[in-house]
Structures are given as structure tokens and as C-alpha cells.
């Protein structure tokens, strides 16, 4: 056994955290854990949004409740911001590692056994980041919208989605979010080491079903506005 062969590979880290993050699995674990946080937010956001179907009073009073509890609002925003940054930084570092790992590409490569969602994470992810920036300007800051009223959430939604262009952009973004969640929801279990023949098939099915339901829930709102089901 040659000690020299593998010398200095695991050394050189001052503490556990830096050694952990230096490893690809460490970065993947950060992506998985921040993914859980972001998924939790997506669920909460969907539950909040769906109150639009209860009418203007219900949605606007929910918005007023959030704004009246700044600790909850800003606490959540801070946790989300940190999670998004960690999720993005780790994904960029891992993608650089991947690019370096195969300098010469195949003339022919058949990736038939992996899902479309799993191979497009680095396309759906950046698009979702772009969408979040747009969405914050659109519905939180009201950038470039003269009739925007931060307290009248219901009215803002109806007004925005009456434009088919805006509505279809949101629908497209939610479809990409769905594919991202489809792979992410399963992948977080595998990354964190939870794979067992007795429950992995269930996790895969629940991940696919969850992604479809969440996408359908979000898409229902612009569709309902376009169809005139929700109106002011």
C-alpha cells in the first residue's frame, strides 16, 4: 500500500465544514438541504396563492397578515435568500467540475436511461432564477406598473394575467419549475443517502405526482384569470 499515492488529498482542510464542502458530495448535500427549504417555500407559496380562488377579501387579508408580521416575513425572506445563494453557488461549482471532467466530448452519446428533467436541471434552474427576479419585480415591487398597489394583491394578479403574454410566460415558468422539482424531489433523497428498494419506487412516484400537482396548482391561477373564472 503506497501512502504517497494518495497523500495530501484529504489533508489541508482546517475543519470538518471545509473538508465537507470541498467534496462533491458535500456540495450536493448543500444543494439537497437548500432544495428542501426552497421546496417548503414553494408549497407554502402555493397554499397562499390558491386563496385567490376564495375571493378578493380572503387573499388581500392573507397578504395584510403577512405584512403585519415582519418577523415572519423577513425571517422567511432571509432564510430563502441564503438558501437560494447556496443552491446556486454549489450548482455553478459542480457544473464547472463536470465541464472539466470531460474535456473531449463524444461524437455520439446516447443518454436514453435518464429522465428529461434530470438532464435539464442546469437549464431549468437558471431560468427559474431569472423568473424569480422577474416575479419579484412584477408582483412585489411593482416595477414599471403604474396601476400597481402593494396592498391590493388580488387586483394586481387579475390585472397582470389578463395579458395573455404575461399569463403564458408564468405558465411556461411553472412547467420548468415542475420538471426541476420532478428530478429534485427524488434526487434530494438519493443525495442524502436515503435509497432503499422498499421505499425508493414510492419516492419516485410521489416526486413525479408532487411535481405535477404543484405545477397544476400554480398554473390554475393564470388559466382561471384568462378564462374569466377569477375577475375583479
Amino acid at each position: 500500500m503506497s501512502i504517497q499515492m494518495s497523500a495530501t488529498v484529504v489533508g489541508g482542510h482546517p475543519n470538518r465544514a471545509s473538508r465537507f464542502y470541498a467534496a462533491p458530495i458535500g456540495k450536493k448535500a448543500v444543494m439537497a438541504v437548500t432544495g428542501v427549504v426552497l421546496f417548503g417555500f414553494v408549497l407554502g407559496h402555493l397554499a397562499g396563492n390558491l386563496q385567490v380562488f376564495e375571493g378578493q377579501h380572503q387573499l388581500d387579508s392573507y397578504a395584510a397578515f403577512l405584512k403585519a408580521t415582519p418577523v415572519l416575513l423577513w425571517g422567511t425572506r432571509l432564510v430563502l435568500l441564503v438558501s437560494v445563494i447556496l443552491h446556486i453557488v454549489a450548482s455553478i461549482q459542480l457544473t464547472q467540475m463536470k465541464r472539466a471532467a470531460r474535456p473531449v466530448a463524444y461524437a455520439k452519446k446516447n443518454n436514453s436511461h435518464s429522465s428529461f428533467a434530470s438532464r435539464t436541471m442546469m437549464w431549468s434552474g437558471p431560468f427559474i432564477a431569472f423568473f424569480i427576479a422577474f416575479h419579484l419585480m412584477h408582483f412585489t415591487l411593482g416595477t414599471g406598473q403604474p396601476n400597481f398597489n402593494g396592498a391590493a394583491v388580488f387586483g394586481n394578479i387579475v390585472q397582470a394575467f389578463q395579458s395573455p403574454l404575461v399569463a403564458f410566460f408564468y405558465i411556461f415558468a411553472m412547467l420548468l419549475l415542475g420538471t426541476h422539482l420532478h428530478h429534485g424531489l427524488y434526487s434530494m433523497f438519493q443525495t442524502l443517502g436515503a435509497n432503499h428498494p422498499s421505499f425508493m419506487p414510492v419516492i419516485k412516484r410521489v416526486a413525479a405526482l408532487g411535481a405535477i400537482l404543484i405545477t397544476a396548482g400554480f398554473i390554475a391561477i393564470p388559466v382561471a384569470v384568462l378564462a374569466g373564472v377569477i375577475h375583479t
Binding site: I25, A100, F189, T191
Partner: peptide
């Protein structure tokens, strides 16, 4: 590179090693 849990490896392995071994490695790590 890193593992993105997509399963192309499992599909071509001549010894049919399962992705479960990667989860086990992650757990140990």
C-alpha cells in the same frame, strides 16, 4: 465529476450495480 442521480451508469454497468450503492456511499460520507 459529481453524481447527479440520473442513472445512466446503472443502465450500462456490465455487472448491474445499482444506484443504491451511491446512496450508501453518500450516507457513509
Amino acid at each position: 465529476g459529481h453524481c447527479t442521480n440520473i442513472g445512466e451508469c446503472e443502465a450500462v454497468c456490465p455487472k448491474e450495480i445499482k444506484l443504491e450503492v451511491i446512496a450508501r456511499m453518500n450516507r457513509d460520507f
